[in-house]
């Protein structure tokens, strides 16, 4: 049974105004086949947590650790983390000029599995996943994210989630900018991936509406760089009604 443990994580980021403390002691344990929703106001550090797990060079870990089945993730390079089974669905995926989706997917799959996928099965898998996500076949020959709409970029992230089969995935504001139809399609993709591989999911979101389609086992409220409260799905319902105001007294969230 796989487990991702985050222990007392302190993270800073360099800004134009100097070094800024973002995460102030995050503790979180995610078992496989669990969905943890991390909710919180803007600027509370949710995305920093996501990028720190993935290893973005902009974020500096001051102390704490992230363990994947006991192995320290923080000493791994970005690509090593992915090969160890971590996946980040990004809020703003970048365009990669000159690299087609087909080529990109095959290269990533080969890197993660350590060998090239068998051609026939792979082509079929890609086609099936794309069709499930209502992605036109023409996407396969377009350059990664180049000229994609916001919804198309998010679907492309979930396509990768389905095909690369990570053990743990962090979904960073995957719901932002999606209309209700796209939100359903993307949510179905996440649920499908979980049903198939039993991966653990950290679902980062500002709003509760994606939780109508992806049911979290745990909800954590993130405020000012740490977890302020946690509970089950009922906590999300309460946030839906009350918002984040009651956590914000006396704090400045910018």
């Amino acid at each position: 049974m796989s487990v991702l443990e985050i222990k007392d994580l302190h993270v800073t980021v360099e800004t134009d105004q100097g070094v800024k403390q973002i995460l102030r002691g995050v503790d979180l344990v995610i078992n496989e086949d669990e969905i943890h929703a991390i909710m919180g106001p803007n600027g509370s550090g949710k995305s920093t947590l996501a990028y720190t797990i993935a290893g973005h060079p902009k974020y500096h870990v001051e102390s704490g650790s992230i363990l994947l089945d006991g192995a320290e993730v923080l000493t791994m390079t970005v690509d090593e983390r992915a090969r160890a089974g971590l996946f980040l669905a990004m809020q703003y995926p970048v365009e990669i000029p000159g690299v087609t989706v087909t080529n990109f997917l095959r290269t990533a799959k080969t890197a993660i599995d350590g060998e090239a996928p068998a051609i026939r099965g792979w082509v079929k898998d890609v086609r099936e996943s794309m069709s499930n996500l209502r992605m036109d076949k023409a996407f396969a020959e377009r350059n990664v994210n180049e000229g994609f709409s916001g919804g198309e970029k998010k679907r492309n992230e979930i396509l990768q989630l389905e095909l690369l089969k990570p053990r743990f995935a962090v979904l960073d504001e995957t719901d932002s900018g999606l209309d209700v139809d796209a939100l359903k399609i993307v949510s179905e993709g996440v649920n499908r991936a979980k049903a198939e591989t039993g991966l653990g999911i950290v679902l980062i979101t500002h709003y509760t509406r994606i939780l109508r389609y992806i049911k979290p086992d745990f909800v954590h409220v993130f405020v000012n760089g740490r977890i302020a409260e946690q509970g089950g799905h009922e906590l999300a319902d309460r946030l839906e009604d009350e918002g984040y105001d009651r956590y914000l007294e006396g704090t400045n969230v910018g």
Binding site: A54, M90, P97, G98, T100, T107
Partner: peptide
């Protein structure tokens, strides 16, 4: 970062982009 976060090592990521271009 994007390419590496999908498991592709740095050098291969560069090659991929330049070759494609």
């Amino acid at each position: 970062f994007y390419l590496q976060s999908r498991g592709i090592p740095e050098e291969e990521a560069r090659r991929l982009v330049v070759r494609g271009f």
